[in-house]
């Protein structure tokens, strides 16, 4: 199990990286953390002609707070997200999510930009981006583009990134006071990709939700922001009956696949379980735990 031969270029600057991508287009692959790309290459599932290694681009690294925005460089590793005080303060959902990403040795290499560009529908961070209302910052031939997370993910392993684009940063609105989050996933083993997961960011107002963003993952081609279910649950008094209605709405918002772990029906079921657990946890309402018609 050895990768096919390829050429290698270590980008010396962002401009250099973009130049390499402009020249080689889809024959090139960007190497960030490599934790998805290299296994695929070892298995010869992909055989790029050129690897553009962006690992030396210090300007793509780091986490900063700029006013009301948290800016995360694309090369920021999962391990950095887990340890960052900025993340804990400004986007605690991310810290909660990253703990579920693979294992320490993988988190030491894997990057947030790599994860989002890979766009595995079962991975945690894309769904967090939806829940957080993040903006993906992309550089390409035509300069910089800022793409809302909701628009960014277009299919299985597919995004708005073109072959000549580079994902350079992520902007996340700083969590406002009174906001809360919930993250849970059902994975067969610790660190595995989830069968279904939920990343939720909410604003509570008393015993109701003023805002509710439910980012489900492993429920279709892309992560899904469950808007219909959220709309029903926003501003209303949450009763088991309402939860059941929202759950039904949720099920129709999802278009899950069948794979070796679960049928679509099972994924819908587990998504409903997650919704109930999310509400029960955030509102401290144990009665909702099994109230989603599950």
């Amino acid at each position: 199990m050895k990768a096919s031969a390829f050429a290698y270029a270590r980008a010396t600057s962002l401009a250099n990286a973009l130049e390499l991508l402009a020249t080689h287009g889809d024959k090139a692959k960007v190497l960030s953390g490599g934790q998805s790309l290299i296994p695929a290459m070892n298995l010869r599932l992909v055989s790029p002609e050129l690897i553009v290694d962006i690992g030396d681009l210090g300007e793509l690294r780091g986490i900063a707070v700029k006013g009301e925005t948290l800016v995360i460089g694309a090369l920021t590793r999962h391990a950095d997200l887990l340890k960052s005080s900025h993340i804990v303060k400004c986007a605690p959902l991310l810290a909660a999510a990253v703990a579920h990403v693979a294992h320490p040795a993988i988190r030491n290499r894997g990057t947030i930009g790599g994860s989002l560009a890979q766009a595995d529908p079962a991975s945690e961070l894309p769904a967090c981006m939806l829940a957080l209302g993040a903006t993906i910052v992309v550089r390409g031939k035509g300069g910089e583009r800022r793409i809302a997370a909701e628009e960014f993910f277009t299919g299985i392993y597919e995004t708005k990134l073109g072959p000549q684009d580079l994902l350079v940063a992520i902007e996340v609105p700083v969590a406002s006071p009174g906001s809360a989050h919930f993250f849970q996933e059902f994975a067969r083993r610790h660190g595995d990709y989830a069968i279904v997961g939920l990343a939720a960011q909410v604003m509570r107002q008393g015993d109701r939700f003023a805002d509710l963003r439910l980012g489900f993952f492993a429920v279709g081609d892309t992560p899904v922001l469950a808007k219909a279910a959220a709309a029903m649950l926003t501003g209303a008094a949450i009763t088991p009956e309402l939860l059941a209605e929202a759950s039904a709405a949720l099920a129709s918002e999802l278009n899950p696949h069948e794979d070796q772990q679960a049928t679509p029906a099972m994924r819908r079921h587990l998504a409903r379980v997650l919704l109930a657990r999310c509400l029960a946890t955030l509102l401290n309402r144990p009665d909702l735990q099994t109230g989603a018609g599950v």
Partner: peptide
């Protein structure tokens, strides 16, 4: 005994 097998046996899915 996968979750799929158990949920199916329980009639949950």
């Amino acid at each position: 005994l996968t979750p799929q097998v158990i949920l199916t046996a329980l009639g949950r899915i």
